[in-house]
């Protein structure tokens, strides 16, 4: 009985805090995406030819975020049943956008006008054997082009 109460409490805490942090994170992502919209990130390998000439430099941004207790619980159940794991969708979406933003912020500091050949790497971080699921790391990197 005590176990059940602890479980429900943890689920409620996870749900409450998880939702709160997710919505604040999304709000911040949207705000920064608007301001950094001036620096396009392009996944193409061929930089623009001709004038003006550019200085190029590698820029990167990475982030590790974790899923809350509530979502982890749902994911565990979903793993038995199969199907779309909604728990991890927002996690990955947030992680990628955050990593790209951090990369763009670095490009912004360099005064770059765009980032070329953007690439993304995702890794899942395993914490011990019993709690396999948890956090992902996303790394975004590309070449910042600064007009000179």
């Amino acid at each position: 009985m005590a176990d059940l109460i602890i479980l429900v409490t943890l689920l409620a805490l996870g749900y409450g805090f998880g939702r709160y942090s997710e919505s604040t994170h999304y709000a911040s992502i949207r705000k920064r995406e608007k301001t950094l919209n001036a620096i396009p990130a392009i996944a193409s390998r061929i930089p623009p030819q001709g004038n003006p000439n550019f200085d190029s430099q590698l820029v990167s941004g990475s982030v590790v975020i974790s899923v809350d207790y509530f979502k982890r619980f749902i994911a565990g159940l979903r793993n038995l049943v199969g199907g779309r794991m909604t728990s991890y969708e927002t996690l990955l979406d947030r992680a990628r956008r955050e990593a790209i933003l951090r990369m763009k912020e670095e490009a912004d500091r360099l005064g770059a006008s765009m980032v070329f050949n953007l690439k993304l790497e995702t890794a899942s971080i395993h914490k011990g054997r019993r709690n396999k699921i948890g956090s992902v790391e996303v790394l975004a990197y590309g070449t910042a082009l600064t007009p000179n």
């Binding site: 392009i42 793993n79 199969g82 779309r84 794991m85 969708e89 979406d93 990628r96 993304l120």
Partner: peptide, 19 residues
């Protein structure tokens, strides 16, 4: 015109029988 990065992702699991 270049319109920047577009991405799509999907996370899925199979039921226990498949596992």
């Amino acid at each position: 015109k270049h319109l920047g990065l577009v991405q799509g992702s999907s996370v899925r699991a199979k039921h226990v029988g498949r596992d």
